[in-house]
Each structure stands twice: as C-alpha cells, then as structure tokens.
Simulated scan of single mutants.
Amino acid sequence: MVATVSIEDRGFTLGDGVFDTALALNGTVFARARHLDRLMAAGEAIGIAAERARIEKAIDAALKPAPTILRTTLTRGSAARGLWPTSTGTPTVVVTTTPWSPALLGQPARLVTASGRRNEFSPTANLKTLGYLDHILAAREAASAGVDDALILNTQGRVACTTIANLFVLIAGRLITPSLGEGCLPGIMRALVIEAAPALGLAVEERPLSPAALIGADAVFLTNSVRFIRPVRSVNGALLARDGAVDALMEALAAQVARECGVPLAPT
C-alpha cells in the first residue's frame, strides 16, 4: 500500500499527532478495543477529533491472515503555518503493517542507562505522541554501548521506562512498576500484566522505583505489544536474576491471545 501525505501535514512538519502499535494474528488485532481506546484518548487529549469508525475501517483494510504488526498514526492534518492553527482540515489516519515473527518473544535484553531524562511533568508524558526524538537518541546510546535498549529515568532520577517498553521488577512476590505519574506510558501490555498477576499469586504495586531496586530483584522484565514480556539480563553490565513467575505471566498472556485470536501466540 502506498500513502501520500501532504507536505503541510502537521504530523510531518511538527510531530503533531499520536500513534499506536498493535499485534494482529489470524486477522484479529489482539486487545483491539484497548488499543483503539488509548489512541482515541490520546488524540482527544491534544485536541484531535477523529472519527473512531474511520480508524476502525483503516485498520480493517490493513489486516491480513499472516502475523502482522500494525502501526496506526493519527495526525491533526494539514494547516497553515503557526504552532496553534486557527483551523485544520480532516485529521490524517495512516495504518502501516510489518511482518511479525514469534522469534521476537522471550529474547533477553541488556540495558544501559540513558543520559537523557524523561520529563514526568510534561502534558504529553503519558501520551504516545509522534515526538520520539528523546527516545531515539537514547536508543542510539544503547546501540553505541552494544546493548539492546536504554533505561530511561525521570527528572527525579527514578525509573520511568525504556525506549520502547514499560518495566517491572519482581521482589518477594510483589510485582512493582512505575506509576503513570513517574512519566511512563499507559502500555497495553503493562495493563494486561497488572490484571493477570493476582491470579498467579503476585501482588501488584504501582509506585516510584529507584534504579538500585533493579539490582538484586528476583526478576526484571519489559513489556510491550510486540514482544509481550522480555526478561532483562543485565543493567549497566550488572547481571540480574530471573524468576519462574515471569514465565507464568507469559503463559497467561499467551492463553489470552489464543482466546481472542484463535491461534497460539507461538508455534508449540
């Protein structure tokens, strides 16, 4: 599929938009309503009034039987110059697809702490906006260090997220993840893990988390909608433990995928 976007589109010129990334298996988007709810809420938060039915139609047109990563981009559309436009046209909606492989599941990650900070006070801290340059530069730091991802701290020096994922630590049967007030995104997989944990005997806490808490934890893992759960092997060279509870969480998520999409998450 080829899409043409105007050179005056504010997503292109100013990063004025939001996006969502989801996994589709067997022609079904996993946790589809959650993804759409978050995208619509993010658009509304920055003043983009898009029709949900239009976005649904664009997603349906992009679906295919093969395992696919869908990225749905929503921008304010075209407008005259100026930061806040007096008027805009129809919002731009673009859905792109990329093949997905189950090989992405379970790959351990090595992290390095990024030099930049995530501003938890920003009005866009909890929105998946198009302005990703801070995380791009953090990813460059990770690549330069020869590791897989970068741990990003907030302005108080506490854990916020990584460049592409939410973060959890397991300590003595308690699953701890930074609260949204710490500057992380309201990840779909983050929410699903929080919901699945109690049935596995894991208490959940959303609270501030210091980088030191990662060292000595029973397990540290990352979550996003493409890789689901990714165990963290090391942070800044320090090796981390891995607990079987992480595998149990992954099994619970895989069972949910099978129920919604009608196929196993990965070949058995």
Rank of each mutant, 00 (worst) to 15 (best):
G187F: 11
A219G: 07
S101N: 07
R190H: 14
K64Q: 15
T13F: 03
S179N: 12
V29C: 11
P108S: 01
L185I: 08
E44Q: 15
V204P: 13
E251G: 08
E182I: 00
G146I: 10
T73Y: 06
G131C: 12
N26A: 11
L200K: 14
A241S: 14
R10G: 07
V193Y: 04
T75R: 10
R38E: 08
V94D: 03
L151H: 09
R233D: 11
R38P: 04
G47A: 05
A248W: 00
T155H: 12
R190K: 14
L130S: 07
V93K: 02
L240M: 05
G27A: 03
I48W: 05
A50P: 13
P231F: 03
V5A: 00
K64W: 02
H135L: 15
R174M: 00
A143G: 08
L240H: 03
R110E: 14
V93F: 01
A143L: 04
I171A: 09
D20V: 00
A66D: 14
T28A: 12
V193L: 03
L214N: 03
A196F: 09
W100H: 08
P211D: 03
G82E: 14
L214Q: 03
G187H: 11
R10V: 09
T28C: 13
M1G: 15
R233A: 15
E206F: 01
V226C: 11
L202A: 02
L202Y: 09
R259L: 15
D148V: 00
T113R: 00
L239A: 15
I48F: 05
I46V: 13
L39P: 10
R118H: 14
P231A: 02
V226W: 06
C161S: 15
A103W: 02
R117F: 08
